[in-house]
Computed example of a mutant assay.
Amino acid sequence: MPTVPVCCFGEALIDFLQDPAQPDLFRRYAGGAPANVAVAVARLGGQSHFLGMLGQDLFGDFLHQQLVSYGVNCELVRFTSDAKTALAFVALNQDGDRSFSFYRPPSADLLYRAEHCPAAFWLQPGILHLCSNSLTTPDIAATSFSLIQQARQHGWLISVDANLRHNLWACGQADRVLVRQLVQQADLVKLGEDELRYLADEQADTDWIRQLLAGQARWVLVTAGAAEVCSYSRAGHFVQQVTAVQVKDSTAAGDAFVGAWLYQLAEAIRQGQALDNCLVSLHWQQQLVQGAIKAGSFTCMSYGAFAALPDRQQWLAAQNS
């Protein structure tokens, strides 16, 4: 069977990560949530594409080189001189948890438009992955929903990681209505427990999840940091515990988790399994969640985003440990 591409749309940016030993020193790493997911899939051996706009600057060149070097297909990456590549300064506490200071907007990733992606790209079905960071201005939100529409028309699965970064929004808080609209169009949804509470708003968390599953969603995963992952699908609900590891930097842990989840789904589809048939098996779901957890945990043990993501051998070894 042909490979099933995982196409990640959104921001690629530079993470300037604080050096724990020298707090005044920040080191450059390639990052950005959708770009991290694309690299995670490629590192595991999957076919991944990145859709996005980079600045015609040294940081844009660095990101493009890094994506290509890790095996991500960048044919749909575009460059612009109208804005610079986005930057994020990441401070770490003693537990490896992080706080972000973003230099965005204006930034190049917000200038990507649906017409930058040729219609022929969607003819081979795959998985389109997005997050809420590509909703923060009206134009990039319109692009996101247009890409979803095109992908859906050609039988693609839609994956959404809420990945709420409230300080990226002009008002200092994510547009709950708009993010809910994005999540409600997804087949596959990943949320942190704090994101679930924010988006459910006055509804009970489980009621809102049931509402998602009664609509487009087929599988919803809710992560609780280093504690557990809660899985919800039409087949039922289960909780998977997370084994503790020594955390150095959790910057890309969630993206590694999503990348491994989508890689495993793409592999199942490539092997001829229909997603709906797979989702009737809680045992199958548990296996995929455990694989995703191992990828996320491995990533926490190193600094940076792209650089910390496991390759296939490392991931398999982690699952056997």
Rank of each mutant, 00 (worst) to 15 (best):
C8E: 04
P23H: 10
F26C: 09
A33F: 05
V37T: 10
L51I: 12
L58C: 10
D61S: 14
L63D: 12
S69V: 02
N73W: 00
V77F: 01
T80N: 04
K84H: 14
T85Q: 10
A88W: 04
A91H: 15
D95C: 08
G96D: 11
G96F: 12
G96I: 10
S101D: 07
R104M: 06
P106N: 07
P106F: 09
S107Y: 02
S107I: 03
R113Q: 13
E115D: 12
H116R: 00
H116M: 09
P118K: 03
P118F: 03
A120E: 15
A120W: 00
P125K: 02
G126R: 04
I127E: 04
L128I: 05
P138S: 09
A141M: 01
T143Q: 02
T143W: 05
I148Y: 00
A151N: 05
H154V: 00
D161C: 07
C171N: 15
Q181E: 14
K190L: 11
G192I: 11
D201T: 04
D205L: 09
L212G: 10
A214E: 14
A214T: 07
G215D: 14
R218A: 13
A224S: 14
G225H: 08
E228T: 10
S233Y: 01
R234P: 04
F238E: 13
K248M: 13
T251C: 11
A256V: 08
F257W: 14
A260M: 11
A266D: 05
I269T: 06
S281D: 12
S281E: 11
Q285P: 04
V289F: 06
G296D: 08
S297R: 13
C300K: 05
P310Q: 08
A318Q: 14
N320S: 15
